Computed example of a mutant assay.
Amino acid sequence: MNIKPSTSIRQDYNGFSKYCHELDEPVILTRNGEADLVVMSHETFGRMEARNRLQAKLLVTEKQVAEGAELMNHDDVIETIRRKINVAKEKN
């Protein structure tokens, strides 16, 4: 866990920003010795959000399988993906 006092961001924003980018994980900022904020680079936040979205989709899928939903075979999955890629290419 990475903990820094809030003064570190106030005294040297550029240095703190560089630290967050190099660390590539959240940093807890404290105020008066107590945890106050969590800060991370925009890139780290984007990856975290993507993982959260993927995890949510996987949970839905696991529930569907547990409830007996019919599964697609591999060839059908690949064909569906190719169709979606082609449609996206046509739009651009």
Score class of each variant (00 low, 15 high):
I28F: 08
L29I: 01
V27M: 07
Y19T: 06
S6Y: 05
E67T: 14
H21K: 10
E25L: 06
V65I: 13
N73Q: 06
L54S: 14
T80S: 08
V39C: 08
F45Q: 06
G33E: 00
N86E: 02
T44D: 04
M72Y: 11
T44I: 03
S17D: 15
A88N: 03
A35P: 06
M48Q: 14
F16K: 05
K4I: 05
V27N: 04
N92G: 10
P5M: 02
M48R: 12
N92K: 05
N86C: 00
L58T: 15
T30M: 01
I3F: 04
L58A: 15
H42D: 12
E67R: 13
R10F: 12
D36A: 09
N86I: 00
N52M: 14
G33H: 00
M40N: 08
C20L: 10
L29C: 01
C20N: 08
H21F: 11
I85L: 01
T30S: 05
V77I: 04
V60E: 15
G46F: 03
L59H: 09
R53L: 15
L59S: 10
A50H: 02
G68K: 08
N32P: 07
E22A: 04
A66N: 15
M40C: 10
V27R: 01
S41Y: 07
Y19D: 07
N14Q: 15
F16E: 06
E67G: 12
K4N: 08
S8E: 14
A69H: 12
R83W: 00
R83S: 01
E25D: 08
N2D: 10
P26A: 06
R82Q: 00
F16H: 07
G46Y: 04
A35G: 03
I85G: 01
E90W: 10
E22C: 04
E62A: 11
D24A: 10
V27D: 05
N86S: 01
R31K: 09
T7Q: 14
E34R: 12
K57A: 15
D12R: 13
I78C: 02
V60F: 14
E25M: 07
T80E: 09
I3M: 02
M48K: 12
T80K: 03
E79M: 00
A66K: 15
R51I: 03
T61H: 15
F16N: 08
E79C: 01
S8D: 13
Y13N: 13
V27I: 10
R83N: 03
N52F: 15
L54Y: 14
P26V: 02
R47Y: 04
R83Y: 00
E62P: 07
P26H: 03
C20Y: 09
L23R: 04
R10E: 11
Y13F: 15
I85S: 00
